[in-house]
Design a protein around this nucleic acid. Structure first.
Lengths: 330, 330
DNA sequence: CCAGAAACTTTGAACGATCTAATCCTGCCG
DNA sequence: CGGCAGGATTAGATCGTTCAAAGTTTCTGG
């Protein structure tokens, strides 16, 4: 078992003081070239690693970022956050930060966890996902001046904090336009009940394009339901039962789209279906879907967060565009 | 912004010394009841949280466990590790530990990362997933007496370290038996090339049951290929092209099973298909699949790890049984 | 060649906890 | 009523780093 290598070991080895070693690490420019070189050699030779705990105790910075991991749910939508997490970890790693995971049953419990993480680990910042109307978490964090970034816009215009989001409306608009371009005229929408920021946003993209094409009313039927394959199937059946059923549907999620697809196939109808999120299931089934640039979103989130930490003024609002992935269903 | 609450703050508030507060936290039994009560009240009143960094500096323990997160791959198989990660985080959280993520391009880079994590963050232990024959990582960790547990057996019998695994052979055996029970006699297997511990293990379950039923040779055709839907489809086509094609196939993964299923459906054949891992995609497509108890596996991994840390002798080898989830395809 | 400025380096304290060892009680026995 | 064992509590040192301030060397110009 190797001896523990501290900053003092390095200092002795390079024949300088502790502080000079520290300077080489944290403020290289104030150290003379020759000295710096000697110290760097000693560091390499001894395999020295700065002890984060000690550094953190002095500076209050931990180079740790926390992200909530949701309880395993429906494997379809869960994969979106998992992909985001992968991207975030990679970006953070590259910048010398690490990602700490935590779970929480609900918003209240999550706030307790913040308290715990901040008190115990001196976390540098948080990345929140899936913020909703009037989210108590953002208020709590903002009040305490804790750096954080959300993946998802604050739908309450009131409070402004740094965020990154994907333009859902642009995604559905793109999908709808594509359907129009390929000759469809009666294009339906299966969405979530009004009130969820994300769902409303995605619906608006479809509605706008349809309206611009002069298509509304019966040509643009819409249904609202909770997420889930079974619900998607039921709503699609309802749409198909109409006098003049749509020839295409845009769905707010892949889950609903998958259900819709099953309904379509069950009656051997020929209706184009587009989903949202480009989940692995969509790829397998051949479902055309709107794909979020999750890795890029994660990277931007992290950049925003470090910008906050270093006091660099970065544009705090980033809206990324999704892309439409064409497969068999549209 | 609230004042920072340290152990001294609590001590002053409860009219005792720092050390007594520390004792209440770490060795409650040596503190008199009345004193303990007073200290606990102060802790609650002030919302005190022990600073991990300071504690860690003294004790060398960080209550942090590291897990590698793979680069986003094929979303089908990736979900297995993600589900494991969710389970691990929940178990760790409940025990007051936190999970730290890291990435690595390859085994060599991963070892560098260990060095870094140990030196910088004083990690308590590692959970490794997907160990392979002669894995350099386990050797490196063992050599340095770093506590670690693997999810997956060490297939080189030589080195023994604590592990948790799911009995793949039992899973495929169960699947094969089910197919025999429902009248199938010609049951094929689509697996990975020989040499991967996991793949060979899963194949053996099928082979054993078939042999026990007196079925082998042409009745038990098998194919080997890399993982992936396209490969599965190709191999299934090959099987179907035989004189007397199998009436059922067991596959080593859901990816291959999904491909096999596509081949079956393409030619409108009627062949039962069973996959492995019970991924979300399998659920959607209706694929019968062998399901690993991932949450339980994660929990056992964590127990083993804390057992190691606390020096408690726990049975270091845990083999869990998977279950067969019946759906449409078998 | 020297004073003063600039550049570089070192010293001692501090962060917040735990460890070790010493001190203070308290009750009990002779 | 004094002494002593034993538990309960406290004081001081320490972990590895960075901060603040003081000390030392090197450079510059008159």
């Amino acid at each position: 078992m190797a001896e523990k290598v501290t900053i003092s070991t390095v200092a002795r080895h390079a024949q300088v003081s502790r502080q000079t070693v520290s300077n080489v690490l944290n403020a290289p420019h104030i150290v003379r070239d020759e000295t710096r070189r000697r110290v760097e050699e000693a560091i390499a030779a001894l395999g020295y690693r700065a002890n984060q705990a000690a550094r953190q105790m002095r500076t209050g910075r931990s180079r740790l970022v926390a992200v909530r991991i949701e309880p395993t749910r429906d494997g379809i939508n869960g994969s979106v956050l998992d992909r985001f997490l992968h991207g975030l970890t990679e970006t953070a790693d590259a910048a010398g930060y690490r990602v700490l995971l935590y779970t929480a049953r609900d918003d209240g419990h999550e706030i307790d966890t913040y308290d715990d993480l901040l008190g115990a680990y001196d976390l540098d910042g948080f990345v929140l996902t899936g913020t909703d109307h009037g989210d108590p978490r953002t208020a709590w964090l903002a009040e305490r001046n804790v750096p954080f970034v959300t993946f998802g816009r604050p739908w309450d215009a009131a409070e402004a904090h740094p965020w990154v989001d994907v333009d859902g409306a642009a995604g559905t608009a793109q999908a709808t336009q594509r359907l129009l371009d390929t000759g469809h005229r009666r294009i339906g929408f299966i969405g979530w009940p009004a009130g969820s920021g994300v769902g409303d946003d995605r619906r608006s993209g479809w509605r706008t394009v349809m309206a611009a094409a002069g298509l509304d009313g019966a040509a643009a039927p819409q249904r609202e339901t909770e997420d889930g394959i079974a619900h998607g199937e039921r709503e699609m059946r309802a749409l198909l039962a109409a006098d003049e059923p749509p020839t295409a549907v845009v769905c707010v999620s892949d889950s609903l789209a998958l259900g819709a697809l099953q309904a379509v196939r069950a009656v051997a109808a020929s209706v184009a279906v587009v989903g949202f999120d480009d989940t692995p299931v969509a790829a397998v089934v051949g479902l055309t879907s709107v794909s979020q640039p999750l890795a890029a979103a994660a990277a931007r989130c992290f950049e925003l967060l470090t910008g906050l930490l270093d006091g660099q003024p970065t544009d705090p609002h980033v809206l990324l565009s999704p892309t439409l992935v064409l497969r068999h269903t549209a």
